[in-house]
């Protein structure tokens, strides 16, 4: 979809990312936003993809793509701290070999695993992520670390920083397989509260060692529900702004209370992807063909993972 230079996929990708830089000129473009936008474009038209990207960058993962990349580094520390409880063996191993979180989790988190997992798992993880927020990314990361580094047996032959890193860049397929991964992620007891608590602890540590954060990001919202609760859509938000207008016979032009209501509910439905992401809509997507939506993409991922750089997108130079 994004392979052809100057093709529709690339054009849309460019437009969505460009639009973001115009929307937030002070933030600008960050390379990891391209894979995020690419996944969105596979599910929705460019304008919706843009608004969803805005929500991800500002509500789900605030500060991830900002100058200095402090938020991602902080989340690395949080992940590492949470791992201590989830898998002491893995935690000890990473500590022993001084494998810093940013070495293995930057791409995982910044691309929301879209470059790491097989496509079927990406879709499931994203469904959960958009519904429940960043804790899903933490849980996926923790599950992968636990599976790959959680037993002494496995670690025996993989001593050393680089050996360990190679291990984490070539995660065994069985652990990334959709049903296994989703099951493990659901089972893992890591809540929003745990993350917030650890966030405070790590932020305190960060300030001690690095000083104040340079980028003041808005608070992180844990999922669609929290975003809706914090910012109930206003009438303005719900106003429909279609790019293509087709006269509908179903909505009579005569103004009345009834017609207004019908219009309102229709708008609500259509407007939602813009404001938050409807998880139900994504889980059962009737428009998804039974086959892989993008064989090319899958091919790329497989090809990529071999060289420890699995990827879904070819980003445009911006």
């Amino acid at each position: 979809m994004f392979a052809a230079r100057g093709g529709h996929g690339q054009q849309d990708l460019f437009r969505v990312l460009k639009a973001y830089t115009l929307h937030r000129p002070e933030e600008g473009y960050c390379q990891a936003q391209a894979p995020i936008a690419a996944v969105l474009l596979m599910h929705m038209p460019a304008e919706d993809a843009f608004w969803t990207l805005v929500q991800i960058c500002e509500k789900y993962l605030p500060g991830y793509y900002s100058t200095g990349l402090e938020a991602i580094q902080l989340d690395g520390e949080i992940l590492y701290a949470l791992l201590r409880r989830v898998s002491p063996v893995a935690h000890r191993h990473l500590k022993k070999h001084k494998l810093e979180p940013i070495l293995y989790m930057t791409e995982w988190f910044m691309c929301a695993f879209s470059r790491t997992l097989p496509w079927a798992s990406v879709l499931r993880v994203w469904d959960m992520f958009l519904c429940e927020g960043v804790k899903i990314l933490f849980r996926v990361g923790l599950v992968l670390l636990k599976c790959m580094l959680g037993s002494q047996e496995k670690l025996k032959t993989r001593q050393g920083l680089y050996e360990t890193m190679e291990l984490l860049r070539a995660i065994e397929p069985q652990y990334m397989q959709e049903s296994f991964l989703v099951h493990e992620v659901i089972e893992l007891q890591v809540s929003e509260k745990d993350i917030e608590k650890e966030h405070h602890a790590q932020l305190r540590r960060w300030k001690e060692t690095h000083g104040d954060l340079h980028c003041k990001s808005p608070p992180r919202m844990h999922g669609a529900k929290a975003i809706m609760a914090a910012e109930p859509p206003s009438r303005q938000d719900l106003k429909q702004m279609p790019t293509i207008i087709v006269d509908s016979l179903l909505v009579p032009k005569t103004d009345g209370v009834k017609a207004g209501d019908a219009k309102e509910s229709r708008k609500t439905k259509e407007e939602k992807p813009k404001k938050t992401i409807l998880p139900q809509q994504e889980i059962v997507n009737p428009y998804l063909p039974p086959t892989d939506p993008s064989p090319l993409l899958k091919h790329m991922t497989i090809e990529g993972s071999k060289e420890s750089l699995s990827s879904v997108e070819h980003d445009t130079y911006l």
């Binding site: 390379q31 990891a32 990827s311």
Partner: peptide, 15 residues
Amino acid sequence: EFHPSHISTIGVDFK
């Protein structure tokens, strides 16, 4: 190997 497509490196990688 050579891959003509541009896949940006996120963070650091090594070989």
